[in-house]
Design a binder for these strands. Sequence first.
DNA 1: CGTTATTGGTTTCAGTCGTAACCATCGTTT
DNA 2: AAACGATGGTTACGACTGAAACCAATAACG
Lengths: 156, 156
Amino acid sequence: MQDRPESSAILQLEAFTPYRLLRAAEEVSRRFARHYKDRHGMTRPEWRTLATIGQFDTITAKQIGSHSSMHKTKISRAVRALEQRRWLERSTDEHDRRIEHLRLTRAGRRAYEELVEIARGFERDLVGRVGSEGFGNLRLGLDAVEAMIHDGSRPR
Amino acid sequence: MQDRPESSAILQLEAFTPYRLLRAAEEVSRRFARHYKDRHGMTRPEWRTLATIGQFDTITAKQIGSHSSMHKTKISRAVRALEQRRWLERSTDEHDRRIEHLRLTRAGRRAYEELVEIARGFERDLVGRVGSEGFGNLRLGLDAVEAMIHDGSRPR
DNA sequence: CGTTATTGGTTTCAGTCGTAACCATCGTTT
DNA sequence: AAACGATGGTTACGACTGAAACCAATAACG
């Protein structure tokens, strides 16, 4: 892996923000994933779906999508999986029979609350490892990126 | 999507750092991907591989892996794709015939330099959209996360 | 009304991915 | 030098993914 001799235009991949951002995000997600995989063998879409339903009393698949930015096929599959675990129940809307309202069962609520604790613990631990200053910067940076995303400024 | 009545333990997904981080990273990557997909129909592993080879004069697949944090099967496939485009050439090492040295062809170098410009432009544009303050915070946050990753501190 | 467009949700299909098995070669041990 | 494990790289295979087609139901429009 010798260095390039001429000094024409190169890019330091390890300093390129999109690369750094994705790499950091995947590593953090991977670490967190270990917890819920170990605990219940859940996949990420299932975890996100559970987390979203748990946040509300009842919700529809469509709403899960916009709240957790997941593709609707992922949600459809995750909902089925959670239903088979008997962690959620569906009920068709009375006035619009296309819509299904989802809500957690007793067991689902228990699993959710357990996972909430795990998530909180993970975040605390993350702050500890990253350092509160770095973590604060990260949050401010994410605020800015999210502002851009929601900004209506069309992506290029 | 009514709010939950009782106030037992819940988690705000949209404030949970692993979620925010992955979401931001995927969105940024998605936007950047449009450029190289539009330009040459490249995939992300191909782009990363090209970017890594371009950074050095010659390199092996193994080294690409550790430098760009990609799985070796991705690299194997990406290298083959770039080879078929005639953007890189392999040459077996004289002393160890398992090793293949990779280097860009003239055309590969041209494509690389073009993509470097695109990447630089993208990053400039990103700074503009996110704002230099937010961007600075983001970078400091990423520094901290990377420090944690490389820190040897075993993940939990 | 009847026709057409839209919407919530599911399924199909053609990729992409990573684990694990694999192949060839090298280094080490005996 | 035969046997062993380790290493660089490829391949086979099951799991996962998203685009697009699809289905049922509702809304919009003539």
